[in-house]
């Protein structure tokens, strides 16, 4: 008798819980629980993500938790988010790596598995050379390299990495691509290798060279984006120096395909005010990246354009899979 009673009690409770659970989604407004932001890389990517998620949480009124899922050149994190329910509680802190990792063959799906939310920032690679080389611009470097006829060692982050692709595009445009030998360094060691004289030039992120430029050990002779980078305003772009290269790395937020429009808009708004906040702007200056907000429609176009660009660049390099 006791046992049937308690069973009935459990059943009633379960029914009540079920009824509550069923009625909640209709009334509640997104977000009603923490949003998880998957971070694909360490370093700058991770630092920006930590800050962005803090600021977005203030706007959304619900925690945004940055969760690091590194490895496989971003493939691990992309695969995780892509397999999640498209309800806006799983977002990915993405970058051009969605394009490159698909075309390199490490990712079985491409950017179309995600809906874009917003572009957040842009990082522009810069070319640094040792100060005692005496090169002050790309023209001088190209001339010196051609004249010597020797092979030069260029520091990159890894084969197929963003800095590698940028290097290839730039040096091909300068007509000295054949004389370049690319050396992979993980963990941002390239500036020191350049300082020690083991390599001749390196394409990396401006923040890594800042202190060396100040101390006069290295000179940065070009940036590869459309506009000069804000932390090194005197450095001319490759385009301004007459070489047709426009490559920069964007970072932004995306959600699994099929996420409701109103959820995307809500995330987009939160991202917008986060990017515009004073905290984010000053952090950008300190870390060395450019805040650059774009709404979801415009961001989608950027991703699609880039996809075609990297497909052809990797094809050219024979690295597609």
């Amino acid at each position: 008798m006791m046992s049937t009673l308690s069973k009935g009690g459990i059943f009633a409770t379960a029914l009540a819980v079920f009824a509550m659970g069923a009625s909640l989604p209709a009334k509640a407004e997104y977000p009603e629980k923490p949003v998880e932001m998957t971070v694909l890389f360490g370093g700058t990517a991770n630092t920006i993500a930590q800050l962005l998620s803090e600021l977005m949480a203030e706007e959304l009124g619900s925690p945004v938790v940055p969760v690091s899922r590194t490895g496989g050149g971003g493939a691990i994190g992309y695969a995780h988010v892509q397999s999640m329910r498209p309800d806006g509680y799983n977002v990915v802190w993405n970058s051009n790596s969605i394009n490159t990792s698909y075309h390199l063959g490490t990712l079985p799906f491409n950017y179309e598995a995600f809906d874009p939310v917003a572009q957040i920032s842009v990082e522009v690679p810069v070319l640094a050379v040792s100060a005692d080389k005496g090169w002050t611009n790309l023209e001088e470097m190209a001339a010196a390299v051609k004249e010597s006829g020797e092979t030069y060692n260029i520091g990159i982050s890894g084969k197929g990495s963003f800095t590698h692709l940028t290097s290839v595009a730039l040096f091909n445009a300068m007509g000295i691509g054949d004389q370049m030998n690319y050396i992979s360094y993980g963990d941002g060691k390239a500036p020191v290798e350049l300082l020690a004289g083991r390599i001749d030039a390196a394409i990396q992120w401006p923040g890594q060279f800042l202190s060396y430029v100040e101390s006069g050990d290295l000179s940065v002779i070009a940036s590869t984006g459309a506009d000069p980078v804000s932390v090194l305003p005197d450095v001319e772009t490759a385009q301004a120096q007459g070489f047709d290269v426009d490559i920069s790395m964007w970072r932004g937020i995306a959600v699994p395909k099929g996420t409701p429009e109103e959820v995307i808009v809500k995330l987009e708004e939160a991202a917008k005010s986060a990017v515009e906040s004073e905290k984010f702007q000053s952090a950008a200056q300190n870390i060395g990246f450019e805040p650059s907000f774009k709404g979801h429609a415009e961001f989608g176009e950027v991703i699609a354009e880039d996809d075609a660009f990297y497909a052809s660049l990797l094809q050219e390099l024979g690295m597609t899979n």
Binding site: G42, G43, T44, N46, T47, Q50, L51, D187, G188, K189, P191, V192, L195, G207, Q208, L210, S211, Y212, E214, S215, D217, S282, A283, N286, I287
Partner: peptide, 27 residues
Amino acid sequence: LGIPGDPATAIVLAGLQIHGIVPGPAL
């Protein structure tokens, strides 16, 4: 030099940068 030797110091580096302390010879 601004070079983190391991993953742990990479996080310390990020913390320094956020607060406007850029490690390197100029520091």
